[in-house]
Amino acid sequence: MIAFDIFLDEHPICRVAMAEQHVLTISLHGSRAKKNKPVFLNVMGSAMAALGIPQQVQEMTPSKEKFLEIMAAITNKGMYKWVQKDLEQKFKIDIHVIEAEPESISPTEITQLDMSGLDNVIETFGDTFPSSQD
């Protein structure tokens, strides 16, 4: 299977891969939005089946209650986490795309999405949902 070897400052930190119908993301993010916020390395995966929105939900009139219900369902499915790490001021990340045996993939853990920012999202976009129709 296709996998990724990830190194931090020349040291191997994990080998990651996921099966079909999953999404794997290795992200490196830096922001000045908050002072002194460090660079953040995040290696996670998710089963896209968990993110599928059922047809009956698509056909419903949207409502904030239904939106929160769907987000809660996604949260409960959890995500696969390999690395969540703040980096030092100077860093070097290497990512190698390789063929690897499934047995060699680094162990992962299931984690819940942090939905603490959801209220902020709703505030940002305004409470524009119509009231629940169900």
Partner: peptide, 28 residues
């Protein structure tokens, strides 16, 4: 740009997405 906007670098792998598609080629 970095100081004003920050940055985001992603490496993403997916296969069989969207669900039910016949495209089983892994996209990296």
């Amino acid at each position: 740009l970095l100081e004003e906007k920050g940055f985001l670098v992603n490496v993403q792998s997916k296969m069989g997405i969207p669900l039910g598609s016949e495209n089983n080629k892994q996209e990296i």
